[in-house]
């Protein structure tokens, strides 16, 4: 077929280009701009090249925050995904119980994030919080403001409480979408309930699980509000995750250059991780390995 060359076609691309420029490219380039300069004040700036990047990448505090972040994301994925599947399997499939349990489950998702932080901040306090008090009464020495492990457990439990319902809802919809003939065929074939889970339910859930894992990974990797309200990153640096680290650098210390360099690294990292996750899961789905 003959190709037509007509440069006016570029005009059709302009609207999209303008929108994307304003929503993503220009803000991002501003950050890039900051990340390669040292700015003292209006009109006083020096090009420093990759200096901030080098410095940031060598910063041991960043290494710490990064490792904590990875540990946190993997922990909550390891808890929320199996727990979400289990709850979805246990939910009722008919009658009034369906809407009741779905509404109850969805409640944590509707609460503003800083309120979630506040709820847990109060709930877990050993002096006046319901949960903290209960633990104290049971003789458990628990104080999330003092003990790093307690702080960690509290942050993880809070995230599980907040976000497992998302995984449950996704899995529940995936389970409901399985035609009854599959369960009937499994009965005819004499499959055990484990086999039904392993060969029917789990394979049919891979689609929604991909979405669940991706969403939960990205969201948890960006987590800021809840731990900020609950522990403020403490005690010490125990719950300082990447966003917290960035905010401290940019807003707390006003180190715009390193903060911008770090933002770029952070952004690329999430992009890379999400892509890796996505391709890995798509490979598994299509059967190539």
């Amino acid at each position: 077929m003959e190709k037509t060359y007509n440069n006016r076609a570029w005009l059709l691309v302009i609207p999209v280009f303008v929108i994307v420029a304003f929503s993503a490219i220009i803000p991002l380039m501003t950050v890039v701009n900051y990340s390669v300069q040292d700015i003292f004040g209006p009109g006083q700036r020096f090009f420093v090249g990759a200096e901030w990047y080098k410095e940031t990448l060598r910063d041991p505090r960043l290494h710490g925050a990064f490792l904590r972040q990875i540990a946190f994301s993997l922990t909550i994925l390891a808890i929320e995904v199996p727990l979400g599947i289990a709850i979805a399997l246990a939910l009722p499939t008919r009658g009034w119980g369906v809407s009741a349990s779905l509404v109850l489950l969805a409640l944590p998702l509707l609460i503003p994030w800083n309120v979630v932080g506040t709820i847990w901040q109060i709930f877990a306090r050993a002096d006046i919080g319901l949960g903290g008090r209960l633990l104290a009464e049971l003789g458990v020495d628990y104080n999330y403001a003092r003990d790093p492990i307690d702080a960690w457990i509290t942050v993880v439990v809070m995230d599980v409480w907040h976000w497992t319902p998302l995984v449950v809802l996704l899995c529940y919809s995936g389970l409901r979408a399985i035609p009854p003939a599959f369960y009937q065929a499994a009965q005819v074939d004499g499959a055990s309930s484990w086999a039904v889970f392993r060969y029917i339910q789990l394979p049919k859930l891979t689609g929604v699980l991909t979405i669940a894992v991706l969403l939960r990974f990205m969201d948890s990797f960006l987590i800021y509000t809840e731990p900020f309200v609950l522990t403020g990153g403490g005690p010490g640096n125990a719950t300082t995750f990447l966003s917290q680290f960035l905010a401290t650098a940019a807003v707390g210390r006003f180190d715009l250059g390193p903060a911008a360099a770090f933002s770029i690294i952070y952004f690329l990292f999430i992009l890379l991780f999400s892509w890796l996750f996505y391709t890995a899961i798509m490979r598994i789905q299509t059967g190539e390995r």
């Binding site: 035609p179 003939a181 599959f182 009937q184 065929a185 005819v188 074939d189 004499g190 499959a191 055990s192 086999a195 060969y199 029917i200 394979p203 049919k204």
Partner: peptide
Amino acid sequence: IAQVFQFPVIYDTMTVGQNLGFPLRN
């Protein structure tokens, strides 16, 4: 008893052979 349904039911993660052997292996 064996029953074949209106819409084909296959076990997605298995090969054709594993599908066929499934009722026997169970």
